[in-house]
């Protein structure tokens, strides 16, 4: 029986028969559909995915004319993390002139709004210089990262210490206080960088700390939208499901805990964002075809229901990309193709 080379969600190689591939694709889409109560992928979509995973080529790509826009998170830190000694300005020139970047993003190495706030005077001139010598649109980006607001590094009690002690109301109050601090920091940084010339602000890995963090981001987006009607605001999520670390928080009458990507999108749009980035977590115990079918199911619904461009997060460990530091080209290129041709998104 012919076997097809693919990988598990942790990147390890595995060979699957055609029937096993089909089964994984069907179960992946079923998993997403049941969790979020959304339609599964169509027979045509599953057949397309099957073709992508049966293709023996190391690398695959979209059909000519179907290319999409790429946006980036933590853009200028990626070369430094790979121990390449280049400045942020040089990193941006590499994106622009060597990587074919459609848009670019600059960020601080600590890549969170709280630490970025105190060094805006350093960030501004670097951004201003970059804007003078580069051509593609340039975002300034960071993570809302609500966890940085807890003691001993931050001003608020730590909900993760209070909850095990049964101090639920105190934990909720701490998170509500963290939201207030985070909103101020995100609005401050977003305002300063936009007034320095940035084309847009990126909220990356949003809601990593749960519903309170999502609320903080939504409030910051709404304030920035009102303040700067022309500003591009991109929102990349951290996972497929908003964790209910608080449990009772709402935005515009909608309870945030438990929202899946298509419902996250509705609120992000309502708050005033310009681009939405769903993130679907990769399950390391399942195959890449299973994970991609699941991710495409969640993401396709976002693309169909959105009034704004949807750029899926396709970094390490999300949307079917294996959870590994060196994602294989065979896996990454298949996710790229699937998100464009099956999920029919506007960008990645």
């Amino acid at each position: 029986m012919e076997k097809f080379y693919t990988r598990m969600g942790d990147g390890s190689a595995v060979e699957l028969s055609e029937s096993a591939l089909k089964r994984d694709l069907e179960e992946g889409t079923k998993d997403a559909a049941e969790r979020a109560k959304i339609p599964p992928l169509s027979e045509d979509d599953l057949r397309r995915l099957l073709d992508i995973y049966k293709c023996p080529d190391k690398s695959v790509g979209v059909e000519r004319g179907k290319e999409v826009i790429l946006s980036y998170d933590s853009g200028t830190t990626k070369f430094n993390r790979a121990n390449i000694s280049v400045s942020r300005l040089q990193s941006l020139q590499l994106y622009e002139r060597a990587l074919g970047a459609d848009t670019m993003e600059m960020g601080h190495m600590d890549y969170s709004y709280k630490p970025a706030k105190s060094i805006m005077w350093i960030e501004q001139p670097t951004l201003e210089q970059a804007l003078l010598v580069t051509i593609p649109a340039l975002f300034y980006g960071a993570m809302p990262n609500l966890g940085l607001y807890t003691q001993p590094d931050g001003p608020c009690s730590n909900p993760m210490e209070l909850i095990p002690q049964g101090k639920i109301s105190e934990a909720r109050a701490a998170q509500e206080e963290m939201v207030e601090h985070a909103v101020k920091d995100m609005v401050f940084v977003g305002s300063v960088m936009y007034e320095s010339g940035a084309d847009g602000i990126n909220f990356d890995t949003t809601a990593a700390a749960g519903d309170a963090e999502f609320l903080a981001a939504l409030r910051a987006i709404a304030i920035l939208r009102k303040k700067y009607p022309q500003m591009c605001i991109e929102v990349g999520m951290s996972g497929e499901f908003i964790l209910g670390m608080h449990g009772e928080l709402e935005y515009d009458g909608v309870r945030l805990a438990g929202l899946y990507p298509h419902r996250q999108l509705e609120l992000v749009e309502k708050a005033g964002a310009t681009i939405f980035g769903p993130a679907v977590n990769t399950n390391t115990d399942e195959s890449c075809p299973w994970n991609v079918a699941k991710a495409a199911t969640f993401s396709k619904v976002c693309g169909e229901n959105s009034h704004i461009p949807v750029h899926a997060n396709v970094g390490m460990g999300v949307e079917g990309i294996p959870v590994t530091l060196t994602p294989p080209v065979d896996s990454v290129s298949r996710v790229s193709k699937a998100m464009v041709e099956v999920a029919r998104l506007d960008g990645l």
Partner: peptide, 8 residues
């Protein structure tokens, strides 16, 4: 990889 596979 993304740039070659699907980027403009």
């Amino acid at each position: 990889t993304h740039s070659i596979a699907s980027g403009m």
